[in-house]
Design a protein around this nucleic acid. Sequence first.
DNA 1: CCACTCACTCGTACACTGTACGTCGTACGC
DNA 2: GCGTACGACGTACAGTGTACGAGTGAGTGG
Lengths: 241, 241
Amino acid sequence: MNVRCTIVKPFEGTGRRVSARKQRQVASDAGLSKERVVAEAIRLADREGVTGLSMRRLAGALDAGAMSLYHYVANKEELLDAMIDVVFAEIELPPEGTDWQSAMRQRTVSARQVLARHPWAIGFMESRTSPGPAHLRHREAVTACLRKAGFTVLMATHANWLLDVYLYGFALQETSLPFDTADEFADMAEDVFLPQLPPDEFPYLNESAAVLLASGYDPAEEFLFGLDLVLAALEPLRTST
Amino acid sequence: MNVRCTIVKPFEGTGRRVSARKQRQVASDAGLSKERVVAEAIRLADREGVTGLSMRRLAGALDAGAMSLYHYVANKEELLDAMIDVVFAEIELPPEGTDWQSAMRQRTVSARQVLARHPWAIGFMESRTSPGPAHLRHREAVTACLRKAGFTVLMATHANWLLDVYLYGFALQETSLPFDTADEFADMAEDVFLPQLPPDEFPYLNESAAVLLASGYDPAEEFLFGLDLVLAALEPLRTST
DNA sequence: CCACTCACTCGTACACTGTACGTCGTACGC
DNA sequence: GCGTACGACGTACAGTGTACGAGTGAGTGG
């Protein structure tokens, strides 16, 4: 196994030494900077998806030449790393001073909102070979929360892992589904899915679709239901109080 | 929301009518076919990752011209759809005749193995707008298993959802991690992670790394631990026996 | 004041991608 | 035997990431 794995500090080194110069420009308006490049890249990815994010288009959005970007970012990989770390920074840390379930619930809900805002990020959050500083701060805070709640190191690792699995798995599924609300689900089920499911071949799927339709099933409620189930299942793993 | 969502039958329509002709060739060796194209695409993606799968390279592996592929596949999207459905077909269905936990455990373990074999598939399993026949058969079997175990339609939906979230979330994390075994984890933690974590800034991460290292933590065990936790948490949702 | 350095910008070029279009050879039904 | 249609594929086009190197202009040492 041949992995390189270094921790990067995204906004350091490549950026212009703005303090070392007598602010030759407004520094945030006209001139480029790594922050501006990354921020615009996130806006572009939010708007057009990750496939719509190309160096040329990004440069265009910044009124710059494509190759100018490479002064702030070594390559597209590094750009993605920096984008992911900004996304991590948007996630609320688990607050101190409450019970661990409320704290983890709050950060996980926040993370889900952030990932819904930046769906392109889901597949990359843990897959970058070099975790950024916001990522590390996040992990430290979560681990601290669990350890203070009385989880042993091993059980905290299990809990951390399971909660992340739930978060990323849910976000992945959520963005995949072609409906968001109960109404959209009803429309899709009625107009698209049901007509394509022969009742004799798929009796249970037909039954499910019919019942869920009749009862006004809302897929948006699935998140908290599963999250609370997972949190409750983790509670017995605590050893002390 | 503007989604097209049709159910495709992957190996039908575009393929050569092999029975209508007096087998002008060996039909599986030399000649192309949608099955052969898709199978080779999966082999290529397994070997080189999804970014290594290009129409030209796939054609090369099949000793054909790039444009020949488009006689069996409308575009790369449809190729991916067909590949995903083959992956679904590799997953064991939950066996009948056992308790629901064993059945779902078995199919989820199988699914994890399949996804480990085809890591490129993880992000696409539920994101294709048109579920293939193997996908539908899979869903039907899982739903049947849960309903027969006494889950109501709504609870079966919750359970199905949570188990899929766990499966995909785990597979996603698993492929992201730069280590697979306990030994590799130990090496990574010692050589790469710990040196980059200042103890005063990340006390809990340092503590965790040290303890896990000392106790020979094996990330491979995480899957069954979490799966059994989820299965146990779902048990009370059953209403009857 | 001049020369030099160096951060920054970006035009061009190359190898690669998906695929639209059109052109073949050939095997088949009549 | 012939028209037809199927399957194969060469070429071309717009797009991608980025290597290379040339330009520009501001700051500094002499």
